Computed example of a mutant assay.
Amino acid sequence: MKILTLVALLPTMLGGCAAASSLPAVLPHALPTNANLGLQRSSGANVIGTYTARAVTDPKPWREVNDLQGPNAGGNS
């Protein structure tokens, strides 16, 4: 039982010792204190872009509707 307790506590103790040391900066150019970085674009993209509102219509055969809205609108595809 004592060995089991030791095995369970050993990783916790080692983890605590490892957390005390500081890690080096992997990407020093990405630090917020770097004045040479400049400003980044912070505005979001337009998520609805070219949205076109369509009115609700009666049910039609789906092939006809698909042909009317496809790239060859109204033509044989």
Results as ranks from 00 to 15, higher is better:
1 M>E: 14
1 M>D: 14
1 M>V: 08
1 M>K: 13
1 M>I: 06
1 M>R: 11
2 K>F: 03
2 K>D: 05
3 I>C: 00
3 I>P: 00
3 I>L: 02
4 L>I: 11
5 T>N: 01
5 T>I: 04
5 T>D: 02
6 L>F: 07
7 V>E: 00
8 A>F: 08
10 L>D: 01
11 P>T: 03
11 P>R: 09
12 T>C: 06
13 M>Y: 03
13 M>S: 04
14 L>C: 09
15 G>A: 07
15 G>H: 02
15 G>C: 04
16 G>D: 01
17 C>H: 05
18 A>F: 06
19 A>H: 00
20 A>Q: 12
20 A>T: 10
21 S>L: 10
21 S>H: 00
22 S>P: 06
22 S>E: 13
22 S>D: 14
22 S>Q: 13
22 S>M: 09
23 L>K: 08
24 P>L: 02
24 P>R: 04
24 P>I: 05
25 A>K: 12
25 A>E: 12
25 A>I: 10
26 V>A: 15
26 V>S: 12
26 V>P: 04
26 V>T: 14
27 L>Q: 14
27 L>V: 03
28 P>I: 02
29 H>R: 05
29 H>T: 14
30 A>V: 07
32 P>D: 11
32 P>C: 05
33 T>N: 09
33 T>Y: 03
33 T>P: 01
34 N>S: 06
34 N>A: 08
34 N>F: 02
35 A>Y: 02
36 N>D: 07
36 N>G: 00
37 L>N: 14
38 G>F: 03
39 L>S: 12
39 L>C: 00
40 Q>H: 15
40 Q>D: 10
40 Q>V: 13
40 Q>T: 08
41 R>H: 12
42 S>M: 03
42 S>W: 01
42 S>E: 07
43 S>E: 11
45 A>V: 02
45 A>F: 07
46 N>V: 07
47 V>H: 00
48 I>T: 00
50 T>A: 15
50 T>V: 04
51 Y>Q: 00
52 T>E: 07
52 T>I: 12
52 T>G: 08
52 T>F: 01
53 A>Y: 15
53 A>P: 06
54 R>V: 11
54 R>Q: 08
54 R>I: 01
54 R>F: 09
54 R>L: 08
55 A>M: 08
56 V>L: 09
56 V>K: 09
57 T>S: 13
57 T>G: 10
57 T>D: 15
57 T>I: 13
57 T>P: 02
59 P>C: 05
59 P>N: 07
60 K>N: 08
62 W>P: 07
63 R>Y: 09
63 R>I: 09
64 E>M: 03
67 D>H: 05
68 L>S: 14
69 Q>Y: 02
69 Q>I: 01
69 Q>V: 06
69 Q>P: 00
69 Q>M: 03
70 G>F: 07
70 G>R: 11
71 P>E: 07
71 P>Q: 02
72 N>H: 15
73 A>D: 11
74 G>L: 05
74 G>D: 03
74 G>K: 03
74 G>N: 03
75 G>S: 15
76 N>W: 13
76 N>T: 15
76 N>Q: 15
76 N>D: 15
77 S>Y: 15
77 S>K: 15
